[in-house]
Design a protein around this nucleic acid. Structure first.
Length: 807
RNA sequence: GGGCGCAUAACUCAGCGGUAGAGUGCCACCUUCACACGGUGGAAGUCGUAGGUUCGAAUCCUGCUGCGCCCACCA
């Protein structure tokens, strides 16, 4: 008759997660239990701060998210219960290229395009998309019990964050660290934008290495043979390069060649970069379509001829081939060369083809004008570079401590290798969805004005003929700033905001390997760079260790399907966490993920395992039913347990029954082990330890023995029964707290019920986490002996065919 | 071309120097008043392969085989 939360009346025989989870999820949010007020300056709050990797608003949460959120939430709940001021900041990411592509796809199904819509209308469409998916993501997070601070939830294109992005851009520009220029970049002909090296996926493919004979001018019947994998680019050749030491070609140095099919004359040049032992030892130089060729072109002052447009079709410079798709052009070029007898051998050749990570189109290296961040250039003579700070941030400082620590450790090496070999970062994208670059081009003097506020005139010549740059910023430029921007950077006075003082550096980042370079590295780069100028609260210079965006990075594994396949929408093997959660209960799914979360090992998610943990939840539920039932019986017999005894680690006098001394020792051991495991991100160990304790020790042994002690008859020794009952309740209550970071819903429900609706705190999540001392093992050893004896007797009984009821 | 990871019970995975573990599944018995999403008992692995170190190796080292991943401007 009483279905209020926290009522202990008449629990059903079977645990039904659906009947309680929505209720508690709502309660946690509506009560604002995990919202954190900024502590006043000077308060020593022991903050534990985590920034949630903002999910992309490209779709709903997937199992990988739930895994990441589960691990983080376990740690966050644990830290909170340890008494830290615990802040977990949620948000969502606009995910420029990814989201734009999905909306374009949606438009395609409606028979239209973004171009037909126009920029403003298209962006409006993307905002609608974002409203839908962003909302879905946030409600899923609530459903799975993430204890984030909802009052601080953000979207990467919120006004304040956009403002910060702009400030960062302007500041880097002022420091001479942002430049614009024509360079070879990875270009996706489908997305029609530049993409970064990281957004290119390489795949080895069998192809051909074609040899083409270039006639030598003034020497009839003499040729210089080059080798290429992309013959169509020859139309843009401006030279042929050979190694200066290659004696085969010494006589051709400085000679001119006739570029086949085009007729243009191009020089033979020498460059160390050319490897004599590859191909023919002669390289065609196409500066507009190859990064190495571009570098050669720079060294030798060669022109660049672009023969392909932004859609991957040949342009007017390609003459007769203009308008052809790049692969059609390739075929035709080969045919025409063949016809002219200029095509040599076509050798089998394996090389790595680059694909756009978003749409899988083959990427084209292309000369185009882009914006870059100079990562290896100091802002002032002798000063640090962005990369140098990001390198120092993971290496031991003067005190021998690493400002940032990676778990698993080997990720540190991967990070360092990447950061030490880093190139300038191309941050411009020819997209419509994102932060527009705050630069204005002057039609009069052609110069560029970069400004904090939208200018009305050119800063150089005063002309009003200015138009804003159409490019937007790489998504990761804005998300890379999040650790500072969510806490109020930039500040008008250049001093740390109260939030920065209290919460920066954040304590921990839990994220996947796939965004180690994209995001983790960029946060370190930008965080260290901008925070070096923000003094410490006492006005002193901020040391490197206080500029880092986070002190620890935990890199989690990947969730795969039961067959170890990577989950992907195209394969159709994506597991929707909400579906699974509705089927088994959130706690069972969380427990599954935790129990399999061994650092560094991918998870093959299979439901069979979840079924097992659903049974575990049911076991806990029924243990509670049993206990509550006995509390009720005891009350009827005039025996009550002092609620003041609850909330502490069970302790027993030496004369207490052995099972009481044993379970007390066990829960101390278990608490100790679980705390240690969580401190080392060993989720599976924590989960298995509590599982083993609750089912194996508490239910199978302790509970069975306690049954014999609970005598409510008239003649019973009430003090004796009361002591047993107290110990039982105390242990159970402790176990609930121990379990609650992993199974927050069930433990919340039972905890409130245990206190009969009058718990000592609004939520079990606000209670204290059990702490235990390692045990000497004497009681445990003695009890183990007893267990062995009982098992032996049971076996004997079975062997002899004695009926169990006879005892 | 560099670098990394994994191979343990039918399945999914722990263990990582000292007598092989868990969940699921399987077999037998038990519907006993918390729970059949249960209880009790049980079967099940020459820990990929070949060597080496050690008193002792699934656990450390080396080679091999098979998967998988990351990084890379040799046309």
């Amino acid at each position: 008759m009483n279905d209020q939360p926290g009522s202990r009346a008449e629990l059903p025989r079977q645990y039904d997660p659906a009947s309680i989870e929505e209720r508690w999820a709502q309660f946690w949010v509506s009560e604002g239990l995990f919202d954190v007020k900024t502590p006043p300056p000077g308060a020593d709050a022991h903050a534990f701060t985590v920034l949630l990797p903002p999910p992309n608003v490209t779709g709903n949460l997937h199992m990988g998210h739930m895994f990441e959120h589960t691990e983080t939430d376990i740690l966050v709940r644990w830290r909170r219960m340890l008494g830290h001021l615990t802040l977990w900041v949620p948000g969502t990411d606009h995910a420029g290229i990814a989201t734009q592509m999905l909306v374009e796809r949606q438009l395609a199904t409606e028979g239209t395009t973004r171009q037909a819509l126009g920029r403003a209308a298209f962006v409006e469409r993307v905002w609608q998309w974002r409203a839908h998916y962003g909302g879905a993501i946030l409600s899923s997070m609530k459903r799975i019990g993430d204890t984030v601070d909802w009052s601080r939830e953000y979207f990467t294109m919120d006004d304040n964050l956009s403002h910060a992005v702009r400030e960062a851009f302007v500041r880097l520009h002022e420091q001479g660290l942002i430049y614009r220029g024509a360079y070879i970049v990875n270009w996706c002909p489908r997305c029609q934008t530049a993409i970064s090296d990281l957004e290119v996926e390489h795949e080895e493919q069998r192809g051909k290495l074609w040899e083409i004979r270039y006639p030598v001018v003034g020497a009839p019947s003499e040729f210089l043979t080059v080798a290429t994998t992309r013959p169509e680019t020859m139309l843009g050749d401006v030279a042929v390069a050979v190694n200066p030491l290659d004696e085969r070609y010494t006589h051709l140095h400085g000679k001119m060649l006739t570029l086949p099919l085009v007729g243009r004359e191009i020089p033979v040049i020498v460059d160390d970069w050319v490897k004599s032992d590859f191909g023919t030892g002669a390289v065609k130089v196409t500066p507009a379509h190859d990064p190495n060729d571009f570098a050669i072109g720079q060294r030798h002052n060669l022109p660049s001829i672009t023969v392909m447009d932004e859609t991957g079709h040949m342009n007017v410079e390609a003459g007769a081939y203009a308008g052809l798709d790049r692969y059609v052009a390739r075929k035709k070029v080969l045919e025409d060369l063949e016809a002219q007898g200029l095509l040599g051998a076509a050798r089998d050749h394996v090389n790595a083809i680059g694909y756009c990570a978003r749409c899988q189109t083959v990427v084209e290296p292309r000369l185009s004008t882009q914006w870059f961040v100079a990562v290896n250039k100091p802002a002032r003579e002798g000063g640090p570079t962005i990369a140098s700070l990001a390198i120092a941030a993971v290496q031991p400082d003067a005190s021998g401590q690493k400002p940032i620590r990676f778990t698993p450790e080997n990720n540190e090496k991967v990070y360092l290798d990447w950061m030490t070999n880093i190139y300038d970062w191309c941050i411009s994208r020819q997209l419509w969805w994102g932060h527009r670059i705050p630069a204005w081009h002057c039609a009069t003097c052609r110069k560029i004005t970069v400004a904090r506020e939208d200018p009305t005139a050119c800063a150089h010549c005063g002309s009003a003929e200015i138009t804003q740059e159409t490019d937007v910023l790489d998504t990761w430029f804005s998300s890379g700033l999040l650790p500072v921007t969510v806490f109020g950077w930039p500040t008008p006075d250049g001093l740390p905001t109260p939030d920065l003082t209290a919460f920066y550096p954040t304590s921990l980042l839990v994220t996947g390997f796939d965004i180690l370079f994209f995001w983790v590295a960029r946060m370190i780069m930008l965080g260290c760079w901008f925070m070096q100028d923000i003094p410490m609260p006492n006005g002193s210079q901020r040391p490197l260790a206080e500029t880092v965006p986070f002190r620890e990075v935990y890199i989690h594994a990947l969730v795969r399907d039961a067959d170890r396949q990577k989950m992907s929408k195209t394969k159709g093997n994506v597991i929707d966490p909400v579906t699974i959660v509705e089927k088994y209960g959130t706690d069972a799914v969380r427990f599954t993920l935790a129990s399999m979360a061994s650092p560094g090992t991918d998870i093959a998610f299979n439901e069979a395992r979840t079924e097992g943990y659903r049974a575990f939840a049911n076991k806990i539920w029924n243990a509670a039913r049993f206990i509550f039932m006995n509390v009720e019986r005891a009350r009827e017999a005039g025996i009550t347990v002092d609620a003041g005894m609850l909330g502490h680690m069970p302790s027993v006098p030496p004369y207490a029954p052995i099972e009481a001394r044993w379970i007390a020792a066990r829960i101390h051991s278990v608490a100790h082990e679980v705390n240690t495991a969580l401190g080392e991100y060993r989720f599976h160990e924590a989960a298995n330890t509590v599982y083993q304790f609750f089912w194996g020790d508490f239910c199978d042994w302790y509970l069975e023995i306690v049954k014999l002690r609970l005598d409510f008859s008239e003649t019973a020794d009430k003090a004796y029964t009361r002591a047993a009952l107290t110990m039982l309740l105390q242990t159970f209550e402790t176990a609930l707290r121990l379990l609650s970071p992993i199974m927050p819903f069930l433990t919340e429900e039972l905890w409130h019920a245990l206190f009969n609706g009058e718990p000592p705190a609004k939520s079990i999540a606000l209670s204290r986490y059990p702490q235990g001392d390692p045990q000497t093992g004497t009681v445990e050893a003695a009890f183990a002996l007893l267990q062995e004896l009982i098992v032996a007797v049971r076996g004997l009984r079975k062997d002899l065919g004695v009926e169990e009821k006879l005892s």
